[in-house]
Every structure is written in structure tokens, then in C-alpha cells.
Amino acid sequence: MILTEEEKREAVEKSREILKRHDSSKGSLIPVLQEVQSVLGYVPPDAMQEVAGHFNIPSVDVYGVVTFYNQFRLTPPGKNQVKICMGTACHMRGAGIIMESWERVLGIKVGETTLDREFSLERVACVGCCTLAPVAVVNEAVHGKMTPTKVDGMLFSHRLANPKEKEEKPGE
């Protein structure tokens, strides 16, 4: 994921603001990272470096914490957030195959965001409608009984409904 200069500057500024309110004891590390994520929506590398400097620990240790916990994202959330249910029922009904389909059609891995920032892909635990398994949630809308063909169809209809992308293409 390539971040713009403005995003990098914002990451540094916001994390400095947050760090001002915290001491440098080890126990503050996760609360700080959580605050960074709630302000920016993700934890960018520049913010991790600021945080590492504040706590006087190697930046790779902050990276280790951020990648350890599922709650932290490394990439900015996309305009459309796709969440794949990996709960027990969905798992048994092939959620792994659905996840692979999304990864294939979007060209990203779980936890990442497409380069055009249109889609981000996440795994979630049960969303509470196991009878519809396997389930995908796209921007709060629940899509049940998912199949790889349905994934292709959803993306196709999204691209039809959003011709903006097409306008951009000739200019590329």
C-alpha cells in the first residue's frame, strides 16, 4: 500500500498528539496504538515509528504487536468493506473458499486494501445468521449462501454501478 505524503504527515502529527497524553511505560503501548487506529482508521508505518520512538523500543517490536493482534489494521480501510464470516457454521460451509474467491477477484489478501482504495477485505467471527452460511457482509449488508460465482457477480455489478472507474481508465 502506497501512502501519499499528506497521509504520512497526518499519521505523524496525529500520533504525536496522542503520544503527548501518554507516559512511556510499556503498558501504554496498546492503548496508544488503539487510539492511533481509532483516529486514522489504521496504523501506518510512520505512526509505528513515532510510537516506537516514544516508548524507546525498536520499531520492529511495535510492528510485532500490531501484527499480533487482529484488531489492528496495517492498511487504510477501503470505501467498501468486505467482511467474510469465518465462524463455525460458515467455516463448515466453505468460508475458506469464499475468502479465496474475494482474494482472487480483488487481488489482495485478507486484511489488505485494493490499490484504488475501493475495497478492503477482513475476516470476522460469527455475524449471527448461521442459517445463511457462508456469509459475507459488504458495508453492513448481509449476503448469505455465498458462492464463488456470487462473488464474481457482486463485483461485476459494483463495477457497473460505479462507472467512475471507467472514466479514469482511458486517462491512465
Binding site: 525498536p58 520492529v60 517490536d61 510492528y63 510485532g64 501484527t67 499480533f68 493482534y69
Partner: peptide
């Protein structure tokens, strides 16, 4: 240089 560390889970 202290660049190595553990990541992920």
C-alpha cells in the same frame, strides 16, 4: 543494528 523482531501470530 537491532532490526530483527517477531511478527504475526
Amino acid at each position: 543494528a537491532g532490526v530483527l523482531g517477531f511478527a504475526r501470530r
